[in-house]
Nucleic acid binder design. Structure first.
Length: 888
RNA sequence: GGACAGUUAGCUCAGUUGGUAGAGCGUCUCGUUGACGUCGAGAAGGUCAGAGGUUCGAAUCCUCUACUGUCCACCA
């Protein structure tokens, strides 16, 4: 930082801002100075603001989704830090059990090694090496985005702290009877060789064959004949008249492996309108069939095993891959004359694994579950009820609001959560089994030395690991030190905002709510802000398989700078709304960043070191233009602050953008060229604007702050406050009239294709604005490109002249030669028509008694004054027209 | 099958409690003006998806329709 300010010259400041020259070093300076750590100011009673960063998977690199998440969170964090709140943003990474294991297995497969070749210990070591590498990549990328997170508190889900939290919660839930081991239907991925939670299953539409098979007196329909070996129960709807006579009866039915004894049951689960209305059931491989079997206490036999092969119950087909066996089984059935017909065009949803796309096989398996319906001891409510309650009673607010309904609905239909996974990487389940005490699992936080029951030392730990979302569910408090009672936990929990994509509302957000309300009896966060997905220009999902549409955030940063990328992802998006991103858009915001640079450059080249060192004082306010820009600035401060408070970052960003470019640069800076230059106001407006911009574009604003000779980091400055004493409504209105006038003159010049280089003389009758016009004469001359101005309150109209009537001011540009009166008449007529059209609309309303009676006063007044304005313009234009007609 | 969102200028999107439609990009014309060509000035371009209703007044509120998208449920 420069200690002494010297006068800037053109050579000190390049014409264009080059983000690459500044970003990395600025970030390093912030980090070195400890600027990302929360600060509690002495005597301040401000409440802390906390965000726990959704931990990116430790599998690889960041994509645009992460970039947009980081941008939004950093905006909130920087804003609250500037508001003087103790602000904490904790970064971290997620071990992402299945995803990471798959990735490493794939890498090993390239060397023809399987995890079994290595064994559990060596394999885990391999995974950890891989994770270290990608964690470093992620850390650098998070930094590149300008994220002001507290690296000293960085956490990884497999760190000692979070792992202890995981085991502690597991034991607590087990002791409360909420965790149980059971043989239930699970979603099994034969590729991953593991269970999947219900929401880890994706669906894909597929065209398959649908078989109608003869089954005793029934025709049953199925898409999966390979599961039907042991079917001996026919289920029909109790109200189905066609089959009522069969209910409760038994039949001998010729079937795949000989004759079976079939029983007919009535159950409402059978849909009379689907297929033939009669179905046989396969309880071990279908959720619905399983439930029916439980209701009627039927035997549950597994036909397909974990590898996707048929079990010994398949008789001659045993050991065959289930998929392969299908045709063979149909052949066998057909040989027995049991195939009624085959529908070749049956479209149904295929369940596939969301990690590896393999077809899911529902099967029964012994797994660990969390019971979501059981009442928690001493709380008389289930996990499900607790989780719904905190959202319903407003302790947690979800944005956009519509997701509250979706959340409640999903939570209401939640089944018991299967938490065991048959993989090696992750938190191994803290359960041990003793050889001598079957059926009595030992659940401990720390590895026990012996069986708690018989003291035997021969105990083995459950080989499975926990679902990765189990540990993510604890993330808001495991990162803060729980189960230890740390000061961080006390200060920063519950956290303020959880900001994440709506695509993981169920995976993660719901589970955090469930786990936290259980373990801490407290909500994990007060507000959930769900951002949209980043899409391509055409609204498609960006995917790595289509590299031409897939934008790499790091490329964009090196090309346009992190600030431009941040803006392009924030502006145009809102909670729950997807954002379309394409390179021109980023380039557009790079242009804006450059504009910020040049506005500052102009001001620095027009101020002296002594201007820079003087604090702003109200006495420095001099011209009408000063009053106008200060008024506009106050309005901007008020509005943008409110918008940020309401999480409307896009609108806030747009407002500030608009102010800087269309008001400050286009008009105030222009007025400042020449005699109205006022360094004090220029600098004050610039400083406040840089502060408002800082959360959105932290790098450029910090760079410029330093150039302005400020000693402290901008990121640690105070957020501007609305100052009512800097509001001058009457002056602000006058300046707006001046610039409409200038615009009108420019319009006429352009319309007549007047030589832009040539300056013309003008006669101006200013009416009520005459004094101001006098003050701004130089600026008007410069901006409207006029030579001499003859200014008076009013006067006679020159005969041959172009006319501009705006803001109650008449401007005439006299012409001696080359002047086409006909053309000017035509133009005036066009303008008259425009005014008359608008006047007619307004008068229509003014003549309407009901309008006058029921519309609010302000509206009526507005309409009246608008009508008067048009009437005046019409009068003046008509006078001018008559003059021209005479001259012609 | 159920639920929800969207449909506004060529493209991407704003549009607060209803007061008569805006921006950026693109297009066209022009420009070496004391910061910026990553710029400046100006212009063209819209029956606010369609129909009906409430209202003095509807892009905005209500109903229906069409199209697009998302989520949930999964069907033997």
């Amino acid at each position: 930082m420069p200690k002494k300010i010297t006068q800037y010259t053109e050579d000190d400041l390049p014409k264009a801002y080059d983000a690459n020259l500044f970003e990395d070093s600025i970030y390093k300076n912030w980090e070195k100075a400890g600027a990302f750590k929360p600060v509690t100011k002495k005597g301040s009673k401000k409440k802390p603001f906390t965000i726990i960063m959704p931990p990116p998977n430790a599998t690889g690199t960041l994509h645009l989704g992460h970039a947009s998440m980081l941008a939004l969170q950093d905006i909130m964090i920087r804003y609250h830090r500037m508001k003087g709140e103790p602000t904490l943003w904790i970064p971290g990474t997620d071990h992402a059990a299945i995803a990471t294991q798959n990735k490493v297995e794939k890498l090993l497969a390239e060397k023809s090694i399987t995890r079994h070749d290595l064994g559990r210990k060596k394999f885990i070591k391999e995974v950890e090496e891989f994770v270290k590498g990608s964690q470093n990549t992620i850390r650098n990328q998070v930094r590149k985005m300008g994220s002001s997170c507290d690296w000293s508190r960085e956490t990884y889900t497999l760190d000692a702290g979070p792992s202890l939290a995981v085991r502690t919660v597991f034991k607590q839930m087990f002791d409360d009877g909420l965790i149980y081991r059971g043989n239930r239907i699970v979603n099994w991925c034969p590729r991953c060789q593991s269970t999947l939670a219900d929401d880890e299953v994706k669906y894909k539409e597929a065209r398959t064959k649908f078989y109608y098979l003869k089954y005793g007196p029934f025709i049953i329909g199925t898409a999966r004949p390979e599961t039907k070996f042991l079917d001996k129960v026919v289920v029909v709807h109790p109200d189905d008249k066609r089959y009522r006579k069969y209910v409760g009866k038994t039949f001998d039915v010729p079937w795949i492996n000989g004759t079976v004894k079939a029983t007919v049951l009535a159950d409402k689960a059978s849909d009379p309108t689907f297929g033939t209305g009669a179905m046989t059931i396969t309880p071990a491989h279908s959720q619905i069939d399983f439930e029916i079997a439980q209701r009627h206490k039927l035997e549950i036999v597994k036909i397909i095993d974990e590898k996707g092969n048929l079990t010994e119950h398949a008789g001659e087909f045993a050991g065959m891959n289930a998929k392969v066996s299908r045709e063979k089984i149909i052949e066998a059935l057909d040989a027995k004359g049991l195939v009624e017909k085959i529908d070749e065009n049956y479209i149904h949803n295929l369940s596939i694994c969301y990690r590896c796309d393999a077809t899911i096989e529902p099967l029964t398996s012994t797994q660990w579950f969390i019971n979501v319906d059981k009442k928690i001891p001493k709380r008389s409510k289930s996990l499900k009820q607790l989780s719904i309650e905190v959202v319903k009673n407003g302790k947690i607010e979800i944005l956009p609001e519509k997701f509250e309904k979706i959340y409640t609905h999903w939570m209401g239909n939640l089944h018991d959560w299967c938490i065991s996974r048959q993989i090696w990487f992750g938190h191994q389940i803290p359960v041990w089994y003793c050889k001598n005490c079957p059926g009595k699992p030992i659940v401990e936080i720390d590895t026990p030395a012996r069986c708690s029951n018989c003291k035997n030392t021969e105990i083995t730990q459950d080989p499975d690991v926990l679902d990765t979302w189990f540990s993510s569910g604890l993330w808001t408090f495991s990162t803060l030190g729980w189960p230890k009672k740390t000061p961080d936990l006390k200060t920063y929990h519950p956290t303020s905002v959880l900001e994440t994509g709506y695509d993981i509302l169920f995976f993660w957000v719901a589970r955090m709510i469930l786990m936290t309300t259980y373990a801490l009896n407290e909500v994990p966060f007060k507000t959930v802000y769900l951002h949209g997905l980043v899409r391509t220009r055409n609204g498609e999902k960006m995917s790595k398989s289509k590299p031409e549409t897939c934008i790499d955030p790091l490329d964009m940063i090196s090309k346009y700078g992190a600030d431009a990328l941040r803006l392009s992802m924030v502006i145009g998006g809102g909670p729950g709304n997807d954002v379309r991103l394409y390179e021109e858009k980023i380039a557009g915001y790079r242009n804006f960043v450059n504009k910020i640079w040049n506005v500052t450059r102009f001001i620095l080249l027009n101020t002296t070191p002594s201007d820079l060192s003087k604090p702003f004082n109200k006495k420095d306010v001099k011209t009408t233009a000063d009053k106008w820009i200060l008024t506009r600035l106050q309005k901007l401060i008020k509005e943008s602050t409110q918008l940020i408070e309401k999480y409307k970052f896009s609108e806030a960003g747009m407002k500030i953008y608009d102010f800087l470019w269309n008001e400050m640069a286009d008009w105030y800076l222009e007025f400042s060229k020449g005699e109205h230059k006022n360094p004090a106001v220029l600098l004050h407006v610039l400083r406040d604007t840089l502060k408002l911009l800082h959360p959105f574009v932290p790098y450029i604003t910090e760079v410029l702050w330093e150039k302005l000779g400020m000693q402290k980091f901008l990121m640690l400055e105070e957020w501007p406050t609305y100052n009512a004493s800097l509001i001058f409504p009457a002056d602000a209105k006058k300046i707006e009239k001046i610039y409409t006038l200038i615009t009108e003159i420019r319009k006429v010049r352009a319309e007549y294709k007047l030589d832009p280089a040539k300056k013309f003389d003008a006669v101006i009758y200013g009416g009520a604005l005459t004094a101001l016009l006098k003050e701004k004469e130089q600026a008007i001359k410069r901006l409207a490109n006029l030579e001499n101005i003859t200014l008076a309150k009013k006067g006679t109209k020159p005969e041959k002249a172009l006319s501009v009537i705006a803001s109650g001011v008449e401007v005439y540009i006299p012409f001696d030669q080359m002047f086409d009166i006909e053309k000017e008449l035509e133009r005036i007529k066009k303008e008259l028509a425009q005014h008359e059209k608008e006047l007619a609309g307004l008068q229509g309303r003014l003549h309407n008694k009901t309008f006058l009676g029921s519309a609010p006063k302000e509206v009526v007044e507005q309409v009246k004054s608008d009508a008067a304005r048009h009437t005046e313009a019409i009068t003046k234009l008509n006078e001018h027209r008559r003059g021209l007609e005479k001259a012609a």
